[in-house]
Amino acid sequence: MIRNLLLSALLIFSATYGQSQQINSNRTKHFYITPGIEILKSTHRNYFYGGSIKVNYLFQNGLEPGVGIEFAGTSLHKSNHYTLRNLRFFPIYANLKYNIKPLGKICPFAETSLGISINRYKSSYDFGPPEIIQVRESGFYTYLGLGAKFSLTPKIKALLGAGFKGYKMSLNDLDINPHGVSLNLGVTF
Rank of each mutant, 00 (worst) to 15 (best):
Q22C: 01
I23N: 01
N24M: 07
S25Y: 05
T28M: 03
I33D: 00
T34K: 08
E38Y: 14
I39A: 11
K41R: 14
R45I: 01
Y47R: 04
F48R: 05
S52Y: 13
S52H: 14
K54G: 01
L58H: 07
L58F: 03
F59R: 02
F59C: 03
Q60E: 13
L63R: 10
L63E: 02
E70W: 11
A72F: 04
G73C: 11
G73T: 10
K78V: 15
S79V: 12
S79E: 15
T83C: 02
L84R: 07
L87I: 08
F90L: 14
F90H: 13
F90G: 10
A94M: 02
N95V: 05
L96S: 03
L96M: 11
L103W: 09
G104S: 05
G104D: 06
G104F: 00
F109C: 01
T112F: 12
G115V: 10
I116P: 01
I118P: 03
N119F: 01
Y125N: 14
D126G: 06
G128H: 04
P129M: 11
E131H: 07
I132A: 09
I132S: 07
V135W: 06
E137F: 04
G139D: 02
T142M: 09
L144V: 13
G145S: 07
K149C: 00
K149I: 00
F150G: 05
T153E: 05
T153D: 04
I156Y: 06
K157P: 01
